[in-house]
């Protein structure tokens, strides 16, 4: 089986997730060795996925944890008072 660029693009997401069967993966790998366009598409798609999973990119605002704990303490206190 010989695959073209369009075929590679159709499987890029699954390829990144390691969710393609070994035969297809080998075909894609072979195609990527000689196709700069598909290599670039794969790399940039993978970069997007990597960046989205990076906690530092979507980090919580400063002081989030303290404010959350303060509010939880407040709720806890009210719960205890209600149960007394």
């Amino acid at each position: 089986m010989r695959i073209d660029c369009k075929h590679v693009w159709e499987h890029i997401s699954a390829y990144i997730d390691g969710d393609v069967d070994p035969v297809l993966r080998a075909e894609i790998d072979k195609h990527l060795e000689t196709c700069e366009i598909c290599s670039a598409v794969l790399d940039s798609t993978r970069n997007v996925v990597v960046l989205m999973a990076d906690d530092r990119v979507f980090e919580l605002p400063a002081g989030f944890s303290q404010r959350l704990h303060a509010r939880l303490d407040d709720v806890l206190e009210k719960e205890i008072e209600r149960n007394e």
């Binding site: 159709e10 890029i12 990144i16 969710d19 940039s44 798609t45 997007v48 960046l51």
Partner: peptide, 19 residues
């Protein structure tokens, strides 16, 4: 899987030039 593939493709198209 299908939606994820489309979503990533849309993001790649939008983001690759900017990134």
């Amino acid at each position: 899987k299908v939606r994820l593939h489309r979503a990533r493709a849309l993001l790649q198209r939008e983001l690759a030039p900017q990134l």
